[in-house]
Simulated scan of single mutants.
Amino acid sequence: MKKTTIAWGMAGAVWLAGCGVGGTKTGNPDQVVPDVDAEIEVELRAWSSEESVASLPEGQQALTQGAALRRMLLSVYEVRLVEAIADGACSGAVDGPVIDGARAIDLLRGEALPPLTVAKKTRFCGLRLSLQPGSFLEERSEEAELLGDASIFIEGSRADGTPFIVHSRGVREILLRSQRAFGFTEDERWFVAFDAARMFAPVDLEGAEVEGGLILISGYQNYEQLVQFEEVAPRSVNACLDDEDGALDEACRAPVLGEPPGA
């Protein structure tokens, strides 16, 4: 799939509290687009922009600090596009078509959602992920059981080998939004990418309390670390174009929606 022009503007990564900046690709808003369809594919997946901060199982760098992740689960209520209002403006955007509904996703494995067909003339302003407690999922699975009443469950170890679990209930919505409306003029494949390094950069794993050989980061233990995680987690997500090599690294350093690493 051919890449199209990327234009940067202020955008938001919104949850219960907090916001960020980002951008999206757009074409000429006055361009006449034939009323035909485009197929959009979206895959949710984790990656790491800095392996010395957080590494994934396929990482190549030896861990000397930070976190090594073994499992990263997300309880999704729905994923949908945000549609521009009638005049194409994003100041009053409304809910657009749903890409997919409720499911538990293992972000380390990655999961492609069912393709969505949209009219090429339709203008959009972003993408919204709504999360929910794993216990709300109708389909029971090992992932749903591990999530419990959390929307995010992460299992890993810090540099000294001490295992930890993050059990987060506070992140319920992630909104990747553009100020300028954009459309899909051809079939495209997007990654919604969760940057583990950005999520864990501010989390004080070294200062966390260890009980029974385990670090539990939840509303009941190591609450300070939970707040650190939940403040940055929604801003650690962006949307990027698949450049047809299946890798997130280069594509997600210049996302179409959300903040690039280091912003």
Rank of each mutant, 00 (worst) to 15 (best):
A54K: 00
V98Q: 10
G148D: 04
Q228M: 00
F194W: 09
D100T: 14
A208I: 03
D242M: 02
P163T: 02
W15F: 14
Q60K: 12
V166K: 03
V232K: 10
A38K: 00
A7S: 10
P29M: 04
S151Q: 02
E244C: 08
L147C: 07
S75P: 02
K3C: 12
Q221F: 05
G96A: 13
R158N: 07
D187V: 07
D30G: 09
L175N: 10
T64L: 12
R109I: 10
D195W: 10
V53W: 03
S49I: 00
I174S: 09
Q65R: 14
M10G: 15
L241W: 06
S48W: 08
G22P: 02
E209G: 13
Q132K: 09
F164L: 03
E83Y: 04
G258E: 04
N238R: 13
M1C: 08
Y220S: 15
A181E: 07
E224L: 09
V32D: 14
L137A: 11
E111L: 14
P261F: 10
E139C: 10
G213A: 04
R103L: 15
E58S: 09
G258Y: 07
L241F: 05
L137Q: 07
A144S: 15
A150S: 12
E139Q: 15
Q132S: 06
C90I: 10
V232C: 05
I99V: 15
Q221D: 02
F153D: 01
G12Y: 13
E78T: 05
V118Y: 06
G66A: 10
L146K: 12
Y220H: 14
